[in-house]
């Protein structure tokens, strides 16, 4: 990829995206968590899955959590949205204590989790149906997002008629169409092939650059974490705690081949070393 100037980037921004629809906030929210802990079950069968961890994510920041399988990464995501209650600790979104699930968020999981019986566009319009918002206005925004994500022409196709990468793009569109203040992604590119993954990583970065949502990105890929984030939080094995915080100071948008930055290898190396020290890797 050649260098992209700010002007190039602006020329790619379709006007339909800046216009917020509904009650959600166009700008990112801050996430603050203290002593967040999750224990599943009780008594002898209790499983300490996570924590205690503290989080301090600024509005519009792109933060990745990286860690080995089963370390509680995904649980973290569910706790900061209120979708699961914490066993201990507290969460504040934009300074307000979290007591119930919030809906100013968009979620993308590893599997696209689209509904088979709805077309691509109707999967996205589910947001509008459930939120009871204006259909025409919402459709405009969905169309803009589809264009932005390279999905134009796929509107009326069903999930089973789309490729894996396109399904995941539709599920990103579903998570962003209502203009949420937070985007939560749980290994969103984990099931995609390497080429698709690189492209969709770039597309997500460009979307983030123009909308500046707060993104919490769960991954076990060092390349994705370093390639996308402002900050990477490295998590230990279960029960997961945050053992290191790495600020990624690389220019954006970042290239397809991150090796173009010598600093990239240094960041990657650092994460490998931490994993080695934690016993995640045994060579």
């Amino acid at each position: 990829m050649t260098d992209t100037t700010m002007a190039d980037m602006n020329s790619r921004i379709p006007s339909g995206l800046v216009d917020p629809v509904g009650e959600a906030n166009a700008t990112g929210a801050s996430i603050n968590a203290k002593g967040l802990t999750k224990v599943f079950g009780s008594g002898e069968n209790a499983f300490h899955a996570l924590g205690p961890i503290d989080l301090d994510i600024k509005p519009g920041e792109f933060v990745s959590i990286i860690g080995p399988s089963g370390c509680g990464k995904s649980t973290t995501m569910l706790l900061v949205t209120g979708l699961e209650p914490p066993s201990a600790g507290s969460v504040e979104i934009d300074g307000k204590p979290l007591t119930a699930p919030i809906s100013e968020i968009g979620i993308v999981f590893q599997d696209h989790l689209l509904l088979d019986f709805r077309t691509a566009i109707n999967n996205v319009m589910l947001q509008q149906e459930i939120r009871g918002l204006d259909r025409a206005k919402f459709r405009e925004r969905a169309d803009a997002l589809f264009a932005r994500l390279g999905l134009t022409g796929a509107e009326n196709r069903y999930p089973w008629q789309l490729s894996g990468g396109m399904r995941q793009r539709v599920s990103i569109a579903r998570a962003l169409v209502h203009d949420p203040s937070m985007l939560l992604m749980d290994e969103p590119f984990g099931a995609l092939d390497a080429i698709t993954r690189t492209q969709i990583r770039h597309d997500l970065e460009m979307l983030w650059l123009e909308t500046r949502k707060t993104v919490l990105f769960i991954t076990h890929s060092i390349e994705e974490a370093v390639g996308l984030s402002d900050r990477v939080l490295v998590m230990s094995k279960s029960p997961g705690t945050i053992v290191e915080e790495i600020v990624i100071d690389l220019p954006r948008p970042r290239p397809a081949h991150l090796g173009e930055y010598p600093e990239f290898s240094k960041y990657a190396e650092r994460i490998y070393r931490i994993f080695e020290k934690l016993g995640v890797y045994k060579f």
Partner: peptide, 13 residues
């Protein structure tokens, strides 16, 4: 899939 319920709840359903 349980995660579908997370998604529908994230929509405020």
């Amino acid at each position: 899939d349980r995660r579908l319920f997370y998604i529908s709840r994230s929509m405020g359903a």
